[in-house]
Amino acid sequence: MSLEIRNLKKCYGDKTVVDNLSFTMKEPGVYALLGTNGAGKTTSIRIILGMLASDGGEVLWNGKPLDPLEVNVGYLAEERGLYPKYTLEDQLLYFAKLKKVSRKTAQERIRIWAEKLGVEEYIYTEKGAKPKTADQLSKGNQQKIQLMAALLSDPELIVLDEPLSGLDPVNSDLFKAIIKEEIANGKYLIMSSHQMPTIEEFCSDITILDRGKAVLQGNLNEIKRSYGRCNMLLKCEEDITPYLNRAEGLLSVEESPDAYKIRVAGADAANSLLRTLLDHQVSVIRFELREPSLHEIFVEKVGGNHEV
């Protein structure tokens, strides 16, 4: 199985909100769509899922145009949606029925997921008690019900738009465990998130969108490698300002109470500075040379003036 997005384009009037977006998923895993608010992530997702018509390009699933009426897709939208006044079981059964899941299978799956997500008490009430409606649930519990709705049909392709937003650390870990389980089950996932550590935890490939355009694309590890080990953390017992002033290849120096955060041109510059310090009997307490984080790459690519 494979997912291929080719030159997607969407315009609203004169404004191009998705501009020639292309990427491919050749094997199961998580693909990340990143970008600032209004970068075109949700619009791209809606086009991929066939909800919105594009102004150009195509979405291929196994080499054929992806038809959401045929392909089993699961979707957790950024802005969550449940019927506030209907009982939870009624709406979950309805969503499953729309995905052509039989009532019996749906009921079994609801029970399994409810147990896994710890929401049985809201779905199954005691005899005689009134079943709970969505508006009686907390935001986090509503999100769990929505995740259940997205996964009830055991979809091949899962699209999660900001799956962890608004969750407390415990529920966040619960969601992460479920995502890992889906990856292990060989599912294709597209994830959009503003939480960069989460993306780094799950995603092998990424696209960073800025004003509808892909400004950075590819395998996350390769992208990081291409930047090189250019972030240095340095902590010494003595004042090292004179050495820093004289050193070559330092792009920026930021002093913090804990350590110096130094951006270097390359590993050679970092090693040269370390050698100088050691030669001058400076006590080096901490020396760390690493690749840039996704957060740093993101900020560099889309600029710090955007709301992230």
């Binding site: 979707y75 949606g81 506030p84 729309l98 929505q146």
Partner: peptide, 17 residues
């Protein structure tokens, strides 16, 4: 309007037209 305001439509449109 209720379906639209509560964002249920977005979910439904992944299954039907």
């Amino acid at each position: 309007v209720t379906e639209k305001a509560n964002r249920v439509t977005e979910y439904l449109l992944t299954s039907i037209r």
